[in-house]
Write a protein that binds this DNA or RNA. Structure first.
Lengths: 147, 147
DNA sequence: CTTGACTCTGTATGCCGGTACAGGGTCTAT
DNA sequence: ATAGACCCTGTACCGGCATACAGAGTCAAG
């Protein structure tokens, strides 16, 4: 497959493919004599995976870890294991947050037309408490540590 | 409370508060005669909520919707309802994806040291299929529509 | 062998979410 | 009344994630 086809099937821009390649997310495909990239069909799945993972809140750096982890080097089983476990814990936290939001949202909808107004917002109450320490630190700079 | 205190308790930079204020995420607090902002304690919860929501994959634009929705204007109950439902569906999709990832990751770990190598990656297989249409369209430009 | 669609590389640009800095007031303790 | 910590506004800058454009080569159909 050529670039345009992969891009179309994966639902992304051609430039995006090249960008992922530069970032090391997408392995460099072999080239024809012309210099054209020649992708295997798996590439589409990989790109879609990247998009899904992103849509769910992972950064490209994290996606990269997931991918490398998925492609699992031969000997680094231990490392893969640890990383995977860490990611699973991360996922659990994310899922938990999403659940909490979901519950709050539904409660919000429920109480919405009952006491007309003046009900306090369950969303923020449910999720605004406690110090913020989300996932694995992306975007975080909690303690004001100099970056 | 003054800016610095809110920032410290919420675990963000002062500038971030002002940024959120500019974006309309954080309501403009009253000012002292000196011009200093004077926040109520709820602000901390709001900021924390923003951070959580972000950490879980919402953009600030989405967070803004959630917040406005949470603060629920008086009459827009219908609209609030719809929006909330939509967000809940969005959350469900996210949760589903995370679950799938979770399962795949664990399968990956399991099969990791069993057949030494050559097992195919369940992560990408599980999540690389089908067209990408995550959540509510953030980051998406699926059909190659000219923007 | 020309035309139009496609691809290549490289560089520039744009949006999002902050973060930093300059230049200046305010507050509090001594 | 002055030092030091804090806050104000405004503007500039940064990293992440793309996306666009320029200038040139490739390919398939007529």
């Amino acid at each position: 497959m050529r670039t345009g086809q992969v891009a179309a099937e994966a639902g992304v821009n051609i430039q995006t493919l090249r960008y992922y390649e530069r970032r090391g997310l997408l392995p460099e495909p072999p080239r024809r004599d012309s210099g054209y990239r020649s992708y295997g069909t798996k590439s589409v799945a990989v790109v879609r995976f990247i998009k899904r993972a992103q849509g769910v809140g992972f950064t490209l750096a994290e996606v990269e870890m997931l991918l490398h982890l998925a492609q699992g080097g031969p000997t680094d089983c231990e490392a893969v294991r640890d990383l995977a476990h860490e990611k699973v814990r991360d996922l659990d936290r994310r899922i938990e947050s999403l659940h909490a939001m979901r519950v709050s949202l539904e409660r919000l909808v429920e109480t919405c037309d009952r006491p007309k107004r003046s009900r306090e917002c369950p969303l923020i109450e449910a999720l605004g408490g406690g110090p913020v320490a989300v996932g694995d630190g992306r975007l975080m700079n909690v303690a004001g540590e100099r970056s």
